[in-house]
């Protein structure tokens, strides 16, 4: 229990996926214009992260490790994630149309989200157990949500600001992200699990 708590705090605050590990920057900068889309995207990311952590852990533990195929990890993981996202999309469309409506647009974007592949590679590096790996996925998703929703609030304020010509668009967004990231450095003094 204590371990899981450390994973939660670690993945959410101390080494926040977006703001300190730079995983999932594309959606972070891409869908953070409005808080509502940010929430939708975050929901989809948490959902896929938890699922993909479970599946990739099983693939790694029961397929790759016993057959000494660890060097195929990158290929196996990315294909698993791509197939999983496709499968989730199809199943949701048929079974739970309401959820599909809410998350559908964001699902295809997630295959190329480095947070998903990144957390799969991290649980291998850190030798997490199944429960730890799945929980790590959940915590990373929560950290992503926190960063994305906070940042979308900042960006909504930026809309009304008077910005120098050369800084319009991406540059000012990046600088705002830098300032949000500074605030997360405050958590750095917490113990890293």
């Amino acid at each position: 229990m204590k371990e899981l708590f450390a994973i939660l705090i670690g993945a959410m605050f101390v080494e926040n996926f977006v703001l300190s590990k730079f995983l999932g920057i594309c959606p972070f900068l891409g869908v953070s214009k409005k808080t509502s889309t940010a929430v939708g995207m975050s929901g989809a990311v948490i959902f896929v992260l938890v699922l993909s952590q479970a599946v990739t852990w099983l693939v790694n533990h029961y397929l790759l490790v016993p057959n000494e195929l660890e060097y195929l990890q990158t290929i196996a993981f990315i294909l698993t994630i791509a197939a999983l996202v496709q499968l989730v999309e199809t199943i949701l469309k048929k079974m739970i149309p309401s959820l599909y409506k809410a998350l559908g647009v964001y699902l295809p974007l997630i295959t190329t989200n480095c947070a998903v592949l990144g957390s799969a590679l991290l649980f291998v590096e850190r030798q997490y157990s199944f429960v730890q790996a799945v929980f790590f996925g959940f915590a990373a998703g929560l950290g992503f949500t926190l960063a994305l929703v906070l940042f979308s609030g900042v960006r909504e304020r930026l809309e009304t600001c008077d910005i120098p010509e050369a800084f319009k668009g991406m540059p000012i967004t990046l600088i705002a992200a830098s300032l949000v990231s500074v605030t997360f450095m405050g958590f750095a003094s917490l113990i890293i699990p």
């Binding site: 959606p27 900068l29 891409g30 974007l109």
Partner: peptide
Amino acid sequence: CPGCSKAMHGGEA
């Protein structure tokens, strides 16, 4: 990488 193309649009608008 639709996330990226969106990122560009988000940035440019």
